[in-house]
Design a protein around this nucleic acid. Structure first.
Lengths: 206, 206
DNA sequence: GTAGCATTCAAACACTTGTTTCATACGATT
DNA sequence: AATCGTATGAAACAAGTGTTTGAATGCTAC
């Protein structure tokens, strides 16, 4: 079972990511997915068992990568010693915005993520919280060290606001706001800078 | 055609709001809706024409009310003279959070709203922008008067962040975060206060 | 009372859904 | 070359989808 560069499984995952992001989990059918992937209809159930399981694998693939990059960025910040609200926020935000701009499906994925959270899918929330919650705690700890006067409850509220703003920003990203004059990377860096500035000020609120 | 307190139309709207919020527009079927509403299946098409039109009426009903309350709150702030970032933000936020806590379906609606935005539904975005965009401009103008040094572009970014944070805060609201010890109204006021403090600081960012 | 209208109802429509089945093709191992 | 497990294929499955139909109500006005 050698994983070819564009195996059936990969083609299904990519097509599913795209179509689910566009039409929702219930809105996109397996027939649409398999047709887009140039794959037989039965292939989904053969390789993934069910539609629901396909969705789970989708999230796992992307979130593993995203959290890994966030952890790496945070560690690098802490190692280099330039620990400020801004650098920590950047470690949190930049990997997400990079993903949001990735043409290889990441762009679809962030919209999928926003949708999933909007859907209040309890199962998925648990999945995210169970598998990636420790990373968020890591960031919370780093923030608390820089904001020793801030009550924990206040911090949690603000982290929630930040997550919401980020999710929302990501899902918009590259669709509406980018001026045609500047490059994608400039746009991303600008967005990250704007976001970090805003969020840092919010965290420092009296 | 006297509109009874719980007419068929109203029962359909309420049930639809609830189920769409829970399972999505594609995920909830008209049979579920009509069963919940204790109404014949054909009633939806009779009263609303189609499923899509039912959804539109749903949004219209709630958004008309929400924007009206925001405008009212903003006008009251401006009339009373206590115009600060905080009071303007409160005029924007409080009506939304009140709606998010309303048991009469508003609670479902805010989740519906978050979902709709996550779905990148262009039609709906246009609908919202066309019908309620002027209110947002009104608020933007009020903010700019208090932040004369702030570039317009910066303000728009930050208003976007605020909208995103608010949307996701609303959709969470009352589900997860409320400590059992305090009343709903206290919880809402606390959330509004937290949000206003955070957003005001973000707007004031250097 | 009866005519006319808006509303409700059960049933059927044509279609799409996720999943299963079983036959076929492929590719490496013996 | 024969074999075996993996993968693909076309077709069918039962169930569910939004919508339409036409008959049966209820209610108001004449």
């Amino acid at each position: 079972m050698i994983s070819q560069p564009f195996s059936t499984k990969d083609r299904i995952l990519s097509a599913a990511e795209d179509l689910f992001a566009k039409s929702g989990f219930a809105g996109a059918s397996l027939r649409q997915v398999t047709a887009t992937a140039n794959v037989n209809l039965a292939a989904v159930n053969y390789h993934f068992g069910s539609k629901e399981n396909l969705i789970n694998e989708l999230f796992k693939r992307r979130l593993d990568d995203l959290t890994a990059q966030r952890v790496k960025a945070l560690e690098q910040v802490q190692r280099n010693g330039a620990v400020t609200l801004e650098t920590i926020l950047d470690a949190f935000v930049s990997p997400a915005l990079t993903l949001a701009q990735d043409r290889g499906g990441g762009q679809s994925f962030v919209r999928l993520l926003a949708r999933a959270f909007a859907e209040q899918d309890q199962k998925l929330r648990r999945f995210v919280s169970d598998n990636y919650g420790h990373v968020l705690k890591e960031f919370a700890k780093a923030f608390l060290q820089l904001l020793p006067h801030l009550a924990k409850e206040d911090l949690y509220w603000r982290l929630d606001f930040i997550s919401g703003a980020l999710t929302y920003t990501m899902s918009d990203f590259g669709m509406i706001k980018k001026p045609t004059a500047i490059s994608e990377e400039q746009h991303r860096k600008n967005a990250a800078a704007q976001f970090v500035r805003f969020a840092a000020a919010g965290l420092r609120a009296p």
